[in-house]
Computed example of a mutant assay.
Amino acid sequence: MDAERDRLRELLDVIVDSVADRAPDETDGAALAARAYLSRYHFDRLVSAAIGEPPGGFRRRLLLERAACELRDGAAVTDVAYRAGYGSPEAFTRAFGRAYGRPPSALHGDPGSRVQLPAPNGIHFHPPGNLRVPGDPRRSGMDVTSTILAHDNWLVGEILRHAERLPDEVLDRPITMSIDALDAGDGLRGLLHTLVSTKERWTAAVQGSRPPGGDPLGSRLPDSERTLPALRRRYAVAGPAFLELANGIRARGEEDTTFIDVTCDPPRTFSYGEMIAHVLNFSAYRRTLAVGALHEYGIDALGFGDPVSYSADRPQ
């Protein structure tokens, strides 16, 4: 995580926390700077440089945006005025009118009322009590599919790594489920083999080459290629290759491009987008079974493989 972004988040959190009900002497500029362990001068300079808005003005805008949300939800003007830090409803009404161009009563109980004020940074109050902060403009925007692809690639690799600790008897024990399902009767080893061979198979299909073992599911591969070291070795190639393939397709806008999969019998036509969705869908299902099996066998380091944890922990 970028240290500069983390520090900005800390400074913003100081201001956001001050929007909550506090005594006036806890929310003036000097008090906020002290909470950030900075002098008033450096606090003002850092915040202003980072978001293009001085902290005092930023805080007043957030308070007015919160007030607008509360008025829109039916709160009384007097209550909202004091919560926004104004000494009287009249002072609040004047400030609100200057900011919104209409009196507070105009928003009362109107769910369609505008609550966001013009801002140089795109940061706004977001009910019930936090901020909506735009992504770093120096970075490309977060792409959900790219994140899912990267998470899938990482998690399968981690499952393989942890499964290598298990003895053969456990790896080959059937995974029991309460309903008939895809892969029913497979052990963890078989499940992991399918996760690996699926990416080998689809990468080969798109590239027009033969998958390992010569058949789509790798069923002709010898047992030596199903050991955990072999599966990890194969996935070290197959995982990044499929990720690069899928991201390349998306970068070029080729999701609707079709190809003929000659490894099917009979051959079938797919779009690249359908292929990516197919792999992600069935990989998610099999990953869930595999993580559940690891839990059953006493390995819980991956939790439940939640992408939120992966997104929070991965290098930026």
Rank of each mutant, 00 (worst) to 15 (best):
N121D: 15
I249M: 06
P118K: 02
G187T: 04
R138N: 08
R252F: 02
T227F: 05
A230G: 07
F92C: 02
R35P: 06
T269V: 14
A91D: 14
D17E: 09
G214H: 09
P128W: 06
D261E: 14
A236V: 05
A106G: 01
T78W: 00
E169N: 02
L107W: 01
D143N: 14
L289V: 13
G248T: 10
T269A: 08
S197A: 12
L71R: 00
R173M: 09
G214R: 06
R286Y: 13
I123T: 02
A205L: 10
L231D: 07
A20G: 07
V80E: 00
L221Y: 11
V170S: 02
L62V: 08
R114A: 14
V19I: 15
G273H: 03
P167W: 09
S18H: 07
A312P: 01
R114L: 07
F96V: 06
D17R: 14
M275C: 15
T27P: 00
R233V: 03
A95K: 04
S146Q: 12
E164K: 03
A30I: 09
Q207D: 14
E255P: 03
V115T: 15
P134S: 08
D223V: 10
P222R: 09
L182P: 05
A251I: 05
A277G: 02
R7F: 08
G248W: 09
P134C: 07
M142E: 13
P266K: 10
A99K: 02
R165V: 13
V80Q: 00
R161E: 13
T194A: 09
G248L: 08
P229K: 10
D110V: 11
Q207A: 15
A230F: 07
D256V: 07
H193L: 06
R102W: 02
G305N: 11
T288R: 10
R165Y: 03
D261Q: 11
F259N: 06
T257Q: 14
R189T: 05
T203H: 13
N130W: 11
T147Q: 14
I179K: 04
G52A: 01
D256Y: 01
D168F: 03
S178Y: 05
D261W: 07
S271C: 07
V156E: 01
M1A: 13
R233Y: 03
G239E: 10
